[in-house]
Structure formats: structure tokens, C-alpha cells
Design a protein around this nucleic acid. Structure first.
Lengths: 229, 229
DNA sequence: GATAATCTGTTGTTTTTACAACGCAAAGGA
DNA sequence: TCCTTTGCGTTGTAAAAACAACAGATTATC
């Protein structure tokens, strides 16, 4: 792992996998894991769909697109990963036989590739960073899990109103009260709930008229439970 | 961990967390983790919403419902967990401050509670089972992640047709060809895609008429890519 | 084999959504 | 200040989905 020092700042600051690490930790760990740095030209594949998944990628420079290609050859960008960002970790840890996505360098990029199996094996040199790493990895997977579950719950509702109430109810719970702010503007909220923006705006209006909620811009208030006779 | 032997079969056979363990492993591990067995009467809480998450639950006997209570007091059952089943693992590993769900014993039940933090700490007695356990846990989280991602991709499509094509395209990819079976009946598929069953049936008919696919019961075939001029 | 139960497809009606086009207000820059 | 940009709400129309009710086919049960 020579010539890695230049990328240490990005890994230490922006990569959740190395949260809580210092430079010395990182240097030791990369040795221990026999991580590989690779270089990709623009539009070349980092991972190819239908391969067996085993590697985690970390973008050091440039940018990588995780893309899905459907049965008819259509290609869709699922996420854009920028320096410090992680990709493929879920597939690698799950050890899926066929990668359901590809990863393509969108610019000329440097990527750090880690073998997921080595994460989980007992560390031969008994390095203590290993444990921190596993903890971080588990955190990342678990948090993503929670986020996905939450989103799925909103999105599976049938109507826009239900989706909104599901989301807002959750935000209220997180805030611990009936008044709270949301981190989305209208377009972003519509995208999150996968509904049309203008239709959602209209629905919000209706709900306000009906007294189901109050709002201004990003600030929302839900009335307490009504006791219907 | 006395009086646990009677539950060993269920743990070894049905609990993914202990996959690959034998009885001796399990006995050692439960000691090492200082796992706690608790008894719950019907309709009592195992976890309470808004608590700090930290424990993983494994149902030994009876059954537990993971439920969500919304802002207005409505309660919805998210999953039913039966003996051998795991619950709360994502929240525990993510260390969420406020549990977004509750867990309620639906029958008189025995539950094994494990402190998630102890999983990830270096094992003081350096037991080798610990590593297997972490591997299993990571597998479980990662696989759930992959499943959730896949479902989310289908469900976020706007129309029933798109949802169907997204799902079927994925199944074809997994099968490695244009012909494949699906593991759902119509009602289950509709539930998975969160659409109405009869509307979905109608949409399938239309798609068949248009030549987008062929099917009989659980068997589907997708025509190859069409080259439009 | 007969009957019941379940699964699937069909149709018509009502409700909801997507889409497109526009107006207004707030924010930012020249 | 003027002008542009951006975000938000509104409206009308066409498309799509939910819903309900039913008929045919398949499977299970006796």
C-alpha cells in the first residue's frame, strides 16, 4: 500500500468505514487487509453485473456510478459515489452470487478495493483496528437497513396522503413533539415518497384545509390525536 | 444461562445467527455473551418504542409482534416473529437513540436477549465462535439490505406496469434467462409490489396482449430485447 | 367423483394520480 | 432597483389505480 498517503485525509474525514481512526491506525489496517488501490479510466467497469460479489469499493478520487441494467438493455444510475464514499458493501458482505448492479467510473478515478472476507476473519496479527473496523461496518449496514425500512414503509402506502402522513408522523416522533422541520424541499420530498411534486403540493393543501396538519415551508405541525366519538 | 438446553434445537436449526454452530459452540457462546433469557406474558412489551435500542431479541417459544404506533395512536403489525426468529438486530447494531417500533409478545413467550455491543467488542476469552457470530450477523444485515434495496427499487416505480417489469426483469436476471418461475401467487405479488391484485392481473393481461411477456400461473417468459428502428 | 375452497382473470365505476401549464412570491445577482 | 432564478401552490385534463362484484379454472377435501 505505497503511495496511499495522499488519500489519507479523504479516508479519515469522509469515509464512515474509518470513523474514529487516526493516520497510524489506517496505515496499519491497510497493510493488515492487503487493500488494493486501482486506477480506472472514464467509463470503465469497476464491478460488472452478474459477477460474484466479494469486494468493497471506496472512491479515492474521481467518481463512480452504480448502475443497473435491466433485461432489455436499459441502464439506470442508482447512485453516484464521490471521494470517501463506499459502494458494494452490502453485496460483498452478503456474498451474493450474482451482482445485481454494475459500477462504472464516471471520471478517471482511483478506487480502493477491500476483500470483505478479510474483514471478518480473525485478524492474524490481532490488530485492534480490526475490531473498530468491524464495528463501523456493522454500523453502516445496520443504519442503512433502518433507513431503507423507514422509506419502504412510507413508499408502500397506496395514496399520497398516506405516504405524507407516514413520513410526517415519523418525523414528529423523531422530533419528540408535534412541531418539527423536515430536511427536504418539496421536490425532494416528492422524490423520496416517489410521487408527483405538484400532486403532492395539492394534497398538502387539501390536508391543511381539512385540519390534518399545518405547515409553512419546511416547518410542519401535526394536531394531537382526535378522540372521535 | 442455565435451563437453556431445551431451546438449543430451535436455535441451532432455525436461527440464522447461529448458522454453522454446534451445541458445544452455542453453549460456550451464550456464556461468553452473558445472554439473558426472559419470559413475557401475552401482550406485554419486549421493547418499547422510543427507548434506546441496544438489544437483539431471539424468540425461543411463543411469538412476538413488531409493531409501529403512529402519531395518532394507530397500531400496525410490521412482522410476526416465531421461534428461532430474530428481531431488533438492525436497530441494535445501528444504536438508534429512539426505537421506531415496539415489540409485543403475542403469546406467552420466552425470548433470548443479547447485548449487541458485546458482539462487536474483542472477545475477552478469545473464543473462536465470536468470529463466526460476527460473520453471521453481518451476513444477516447485508442480505436484508440487499432485499430491501431490491424491493424499494420495484416499489418506487410509478405505475403497476413498471413495477411488474422491474420485478420480473430482476427475476429473469437471477434465473439467468428469459424463462423463470416466481415464488409468489398473485395476491402475494400484489402485496410485494403494493398494488391492487385485480388491477395487477388486468395489467398483466394487457402486457401479454401487447407481447411484453408470456405467462402461465407462476411461470413467466420475457421476450428478448426488441430493436426498434 | 362431487363439493367446497382458493386462485385467477374480467369488467365497470369511482377515486386518485400524473402531467402540463401557469401565477405568485421569495431569494439572489447585476 | 430590476431582472432572473427558484420554490411552491393552483388548476384542468388525461391516464391510471383502487375498488367491488363476478365468472371460470384449479386445487383440495370428503
Amino acid at each position: 500500500m505505497k503511495n496511499m498517503e495522499e488519500f489519507f485525509p479523504i479516508l479519515l474525514r469522509n469515509c464512515p468505514l474509518f470513523a474514529g481512526f487516526d493516520e497510524a491506525d489506517l496505515r496499519a489496517l491497510l497493510m493488515c487487509l492487503s487493500a488494493v488501490r486501482k486506477h480506472f479510466e472514464k467509463n470503465t467497469f469497476v464491478f460488472v453485473m452478474d459477477e460474484r460479489a466479494g469486494l468493497v469499493g471506496i472512491v479515492l478520487s474521481g467518481a463512480v456510478h452504480v448502475v443497473r441494467e435491466d433485461f432489455w438493455g436499459g441502464r439506470e444510475i442508482l447512485t453516484r459515489v464521490e471521494p470517501g464514499g463506499l459502494f458494494g458493501e452490502a453485496f460483498a458482505c452478503a456474498g451474493v452470487e450474482k451482482l445485481p448492479v454494475s459500477a462504472v467510473a464516471d471520471e478517471e478515478s482511483h478506487v480502493l478495493l477491500l476483500d470483505c472476507q478479510r474483514f471478518l476473519k480473525p485478524c492474524p496479527s490481532a490488530c485492534t483496528f480490526h475490531h473498530k473496523l468491524i464495528k463501523n461496518l456493522t454500523h453502516i449496514l445496520a443504519r442503512k437497513n433502518v433507513m431503507l425500512t423507514q422509506k419502504l414503509e412510507c413508499v408502500t402506502r397506496r395514496t399520497t396522503r398516506e405516504k405524507l402522513l407516514c413520513y410526517l408522523s415519523e418525523r414528529a416522533r423523531l422530533a419528540g413533539g408535534r412541531a418539527f422541520d423536515i430536511p427536504f424541499d418539496r421536490q425532494e420530498l416528492a422524490d423520496y415518497l416517489s410521487v408527483d411534486r405538484s400532486a403532492m403540493s395539492a394534497e398538502l393543501s387539501k390536508m391543511r384545509t381539512k385540519g390534518l396538519l399545518r405547515y409553512h415551508r419546511n416547518h410542519f405541525e401535526l394536531p394531537g390525536a382526535k378522540h372521535e366519538p
